[in-house]
Design a protein around this nucleic acid. Structure first.
Lengths: 127, 127
DNA sequence: CGGGATCCGGCTTGATACTG
DNA sequence: CAGTATCAAGCCGGATCCCG
């Protein structure tokens, strides 16, 4: 079942409906995709190049999940060859901004994180 | 190997060092744990009860990852029976606040998300 | 170009049992 | 109480082939 390839929902989806959307947003490819789309509108293969390392399948899956959640707008033109543009919806833009805020904050504090890691690893010797 | 149970880093960790920390923070158990610790200081089994559904192993792993990143402080008292308290560090509190900001925003917009999902599913007839 | 369907390997997860 | 060790299973994600 589930031929859309949508990310499966587990029991927690029932306890907390926002959990699924949150995982789409914060997941490995979701966050990178939102980050890329925050900079503009792109076609499928443009995104594939911007979100380095993503496979067709994962990008397709990610975009469908985000579109289904109303965060991404998909504009398919029935031309030949086909042309499909992806862009953030207003809601998607708000989500992306908050996500990027978290990401940029963590990035800015990476020196402190790396320092903490060194202390931790040192105190426990190697393992 | 890797007895610390640290979440393994993949290729992207090299491209973007903050990626690993971000995944600790936004992951399923990481976010719930940070959310729980944002409300106070708790012992291991108190956390286990608050973060409903988490196994001992996952909670232990999550806490170690967050501690190693300098987001959580672990206070182990060598008493008998042992008592270990976990709390956010100042850095962890800042991260948790931004994370919760994103979470609460998404939660607040869930009606719009659910509505978008209905439209999406309807337009594609089930599949 | 923009995807969908399928197969498959490996990592992540979860039970369970054990230790201090 | 606070974890660690071990093991089996299941899902994620990648590669590949195919279609419109």
């Amino acid at each position: 079942m589930d031929p859309t390839g949508d990310i499966p929902f587990d029991v927690f989806a029932k306890l907390c409906p926002s959990r699924g959307t949150l995982e789409h947003v914060t997941g490995r490819w979701g966050s990178l995709t939102l980050g890329a789309l925050h900079e503009g509108t792109f076609r499928f293969n443009e995104l594939r190049r911007r979100v380095e390392g993503v496979s067709e399948k994962m990008l397709s899956q990610t975009l469908q999940a985000l579109e289904r959640d109303g965060l991404v707008h998909r504009d398919a033109q029935p031309t030949n060859p086909p042309r499909v543009d992806y862009e953030l919806t207003p809601l998607g833009r708000e989500v992306a901004e908050r996500l990027l805020s978290l990401i940029h904050f963590v990035e800015g504090r990476m020196p402190a994180v790396l320092e903490a890691r060194e202390s931790y690893d040192e105190a426990r010797g190697g393992r």
